[in-house]
């Protein structure tokens, strides 16, 4: 059933995101073509500047677009009129959530790839070669020595942290929308409110942690900890990455459970 759900999720995103992707790549191509007519004239500068602005706007539209589509798809498909059909399908709420999460995550990745591809197209040629050279130089001279040659290990950890963070954010949005639909009126308002309350709570918690660390900075315990960090940098970096991944997964699981519980037990369709 998840396969079938995914088929419809992908078709929904495809129809809406493909035009945006084409616009991004089109504006990137336009920018690249403009560069062939490089001249020290004001008309060239205006033309080039405009094509850069267009590319930036198109890329931003694609990024914002995928977020808006992911959020509105979840809300409309589950909690608005369409929910009567979606939630009457012989499918579990877990399967609904997994399919929606997978589609939202993969289309976010595709959007990222499209924007990078746009940059590659716009900078194709000498600029792209310079960028790649600088990138490889950074990896070889800065990243490689810093990670003691374990680039792949750190790369995987970084990638996992990024994936779990993205999954966490998508599930947070779903949880906020699910909580919001419990309201009798202004459901979107409550959903947005939930998101910002959560955001501010995290900010406050973060600030409290920083204050605590500052207060404890001179304590013997902190000194011991700093010494340990200094002596075991590699281990601590791996532990840190593992902690971030685990942290993201725990929160993602909590958000998933909140949404799933509401879909199963606390539905309040319009």
């Amino acid at each position: 059933m998840v396969k079938k759900l995914l088929k419809y999720e992908f078709s929904f995103y495809y129809k809406r995101m493909l035009p945006l992707f084409l616009v991004v790549l089109g504006t990137a191509l336009l920018n690249r073509i403009t560069q062939f007519f490089e001249a020290d004239t004001s008309s060239y500068r205006i033309l080039f500047g405009s094509s850069v602005v267009l590319l930036v706007v198109a890329s931003l539209a694609a990024v914002i677009g995928v977020i808006v589509i992911a959020v509105s798809r979840y809300y409309k498909n589950m909690f608005a009129n369409e929910g009567y059909l979606t939630l009457s399908l012989p499918v579990t709420s877990e399967q609904h959530l997994v399919s929606k999460l997978t589609a939202a995550f993969l289309w976010s990745v595709f959007t990222g790839i499209c924007v990078l591809l746009g940059i590659a197209v716009a900078t194709a040629g000498d600029v792209f070669a310079e960028l790649m050279k600088a990138g490889f130089y950074m990896v070889r001279k800065v990243v490689w020595p810093a990670v003691h040659g374990n680039t792949i290990g750190y790369g995987i950890e970084f990638l996992l942290a990024l994936i779990t963070a993205s999954v966490k954010v998508i599930l947070l949005c779903y949880a906020c929308l699910s909580i919001g639909q419990r309201a009798k009126k202004n459901r979107i308002g409550l959903s947005v409110g939930c998101f910002f309350i959560y955001y501010f709570a995290c900010q406050i918690l973060g600030t409290v942690c920083v204050i605590l660390v500052t207060i404890l900075a001179q304590s013997p315990l902190m000194e011991k900890l700093l010494k340990f960090l200094e002596e075991n940098t590699i281990l601590c970096l791996h532990l840190g990455a593992g902690f971030v991944i685990l942290w993201n997964l725990c929160f993602a699981a909590v958000y998933f459970l909140i949404s799933n519980h509401i879909l199963k037990k606390k539905l309040n369709l319009e």
Partner: peptide
Amino acid sequence: KGIVAYLPDNHFIN
């Protein structure tokens, strides 16, 4: 849900 065919009282189709 596999054996109940339900017609809601609103436009439930995209």
